[in-house]
């Protein structure tokens, strides 16, 4: 592609020159296209991540998209616990994360988005993590857990760490494993 004053002036034998396509003009058009694609992509990307308004209003750090992905992941990691565990654990993580420094928040967000986009690379399936059946989601998580790439293994460990932090402080979970702590408020000195 030729861009610039020479093309705009036209040369013998060339097609009649249209409006001058300057570098700035091209960049402007590209930016416009990118914005449209971006908006379209964003609209596509956030489909299916709606939360009911009451829950959305309670979010302190995560976006609705991030919470939905996190809940889906926790549903697999915490399978075997009571039905409320994934949502309650994800809500706990939202509050906890709001008190962490910016770099920690960035890492958790990257982890969540990375998981949502992981299926093609992890198990060769197109589509997002949240759209997979539970068995396929487990395969994605297992792929990360045993990945030859340390970053993915550590991402799994981080995800699991968040899930157990959110779940194993809940009375229902503690009762299920026979743990009689923590102490009642005021039990110490």
């Amino acid at each position: 592609m030729t861009v610039g004053p020479r093309a705009a002036a036209g040369t013998p034998g060339s097609a009649p020159a249209g409006p001058a396509l300057t570098r700035r003009g091209l960049l402007r058009r590209a930016a416009g296209v990118a914005a449209l694609v971006g908006l379209g992509g964003a609209a596509w990307a956030v489909r299916g991540y709606r939360l009911d308004p009451a829950r959305a209003a309670r979010l302190r750090c995560l976006t609705a998209l991030e919470l939905v992905v996190l809940e889906a992941a926790f549903a697999r990691v915490l399978d075997g616990l009571d039905a409320d565990a994934p949502a309650e654990a994800a809500a706990w993580v939202d509050g906890w994360l709001s008190r962490r420094p910016a770099w920690a928040q960035r890492e958790v967000r990257a982890l969540i988005v990375g998981l949502e986009l992981a299926p093609p690379a992890a198990i060769g399936r197109l589509g997002r993590f949240t759209r997979l059946a539970p068995e396929a989601q487990d395969r994605v998580l297992r792929a990360w857990e045993a990945a030859p790439v340390p970053l993915l293994r550590h991402a799994f460990a981080g995800l699991k760490g968040l899930a157990v932090m959110g779940a194993y402080g809940r009375p229902a979970t503690l009762a299920a494993i026979g743990y009689d702590g923590p102490l009642a408020p005021g039990a110490g000195r």
Binding site: V77, L78, D79, G80, L81, D138, Y168, A176, I177
Partner: peptide, 9 residues
């Protein structure tokens, strides 16, 4: 993770 992990716990 999952059900196996919960059984262990």
């Amino acid at each position: 993770f999952g059900a196996d992990h919960a059984r262990l716990m």
